[in-house]
């Protein structure tokens, strides 16, 4: 997985998307970006452990905790970004 960016204070949905895309950099060819609506497991081919790892990095960067009850709902970057953004708002 890619390196994490600096901590972000006020977080928008777009910040979250950019952060996740940055983290997924190593899974695609150089210069390519994973689309917001690509299914991370079925289309991008990540293992659920890889997704967990991305989530753990997001938890550190945004200082949030992601409930594991909701892991099953995360299919795309967009799903993840929306939830992370809400969690930073709490």
């Amino acid at each position: 997985m890619g390196r994490v960016l600096r901590p972000i204070v006020m977080t928008t949905y777009n910040d979250c998307v950019a952060q996740i895309q940055q983290m997924l950099q190593s899974t695609v060819a150089k210069g390519e970006v994973v689309g917001e609506d690509v299914d991370l497991i079925e289309e991008l081919g990540l293992a659920s452990l890889d997704v967990m790892e991305v989530i753990e990095q997001l938890e550190d960067v945004f200082d949030i905790s992601f409930p594991i009850n909701e892991l099953g709902d995360v299919r795309t970057i967009s799903d993840l970004a929306r939830r992370v953004q809400q969690l930073t708002d709490r």
Binding site: D63, S65, P67, N69
Partner: peptide, 26 residues
């Protein structure tokens, strides 16, 4: 945990500091 209906979080294996972070965030 799943059956309880509670909100469930994991802390990194054997990592009290990560646990502390999670509790602080709550």
């Amino acid at each position: 945990a799943k059956l309880s209906g509670a909100e469930v979080y994991r802390f990194r294996h054997n990592d009290p500091e990560d646990l502390a972070k999670r509790l602080r965030r709550l």
